[in-house]
């Protein structure tokens, strides 16, 4: 089992305000890590910093992806190297079709890996296969990215993109928020089917509910910019029962 991601003493701020205050976390291939914590703890900041969101500034610390300095890479290079974020609020892009968007993304990744671009026929076959897995409608191809999608469709579309791009590290940021139980099941089944011994996931969530479907190997509690407690899946149940206040830290 080899190290996929190493976060060492990570500090980050936005607009001069420090949000992450020394995060340490190691993720091995094949593992699922849940990150829970109260509002404002820095959960979304962590996902933004790992993906290179320019709104945030890293002030201290290191992050390595398969031994490479992740923080030195442009956002698109991190993505091509296999870091994928399922956005809490997927962005609507009117006028850019899912087909055009997805083909540009997948061929950028293939080029980075030294592979030939997919032919239109191969690409469309792959789209069809993955759409079916997420129970997304056929007409998705011609629709603009996320435009007019319901909350559930947007989240399914995130996991669909994850299925298309086959990342080595998936970060699911509050993927369960705004989902009804059927959509939650489809999304979670999608995530579980994409799991391999070589990839890993970080599941950021507020609630235990999602973890009934996506079972984590580790649960971390992030509070005030630091991981304050780590346990197995029973920690999530304990949090559900006692709340963050009741946690003996």
């Amino acid at each position: 089992m080899s190290k996929l991601l190493e976060i060492k003493d990570l500090h980050a701020s936005i607009g001069g305000k420090e949000i992450l205050k020394g995060v340490n976390l190691t993720i091995n291939e094949g593992e699922v890590h849940a990150i829970m914590g109260p509002n404002g703890a820095g959960k979304s900041t962590l996902s933004a910093v790992l993906t290179g969101n320019p709104a945030y500034e890293v002030t201290r610390g290191k992050v390595y992806l398969k031994g490479q300095n992740l923080l030195a890479m442009e956002p698109e290079i991190r993505a091509r190297a296999g870091v994928f974020l399922s956005f809490q609020y997927p962005v609507e892009i009117p006028g850019v079709s899912m087909t055009n968007f997805m083909r540009t993304a997948i061929n950028a990744k293939r080029e980075y890996e030294g592979k030939e671009p997919l032919s239109p026929r191969e690409f469309l076959a792959l789209m069809r296969e993955k759409k079916k897995m997420l129970e997304l409608p056929d007409k998705l191809n011609n629709r603009s990215v996320n435009e007019g999608f319901s909350g559930g469709e947007k989240k399914k579309n995130e996991i669909f993109q994850m299925a298309m791009l086959e990342p080595c590290l998936s970060i699911l940021d509050e993927t369960d928020s705004g989902l009804d139980i059927d959509a939650l099941r489809i999304v979670a089944e999608g995530v579980n089917r994409l799991k391999t011994p070589e990839n890993a996931s970080i599941v950021i969530t507020h609630y235990q509910r999602l973890l009934d479907y996506i079972v984590p190997d580790f649960v971390h509690v992030l509070a005030d910019g630091k991981i304050v407690k780590t346990g197995d899946k029973s920690l999530a149940l304990e949090l559900e029962e006692k709340g963050y206040e009741g946690l003996s830290l």
């Binding site: 698109e76 850019v96 993304a105 993109q161 791009l165």
Partner: peptide, 22 residues
């Protein structure tokens, strides 16, 4: 929208082109 596209591996210049085209 630019960042969303970059997060999918599309470089910034190409992302700009897609948005302008749209």
């Amino acid at each position: 929208a630019l960042f969303y596209m970059q997060q999918r591996g599309i470089d910034k210049e190409k992302a700009r082109q897609l948005l302008v085209g749209a």
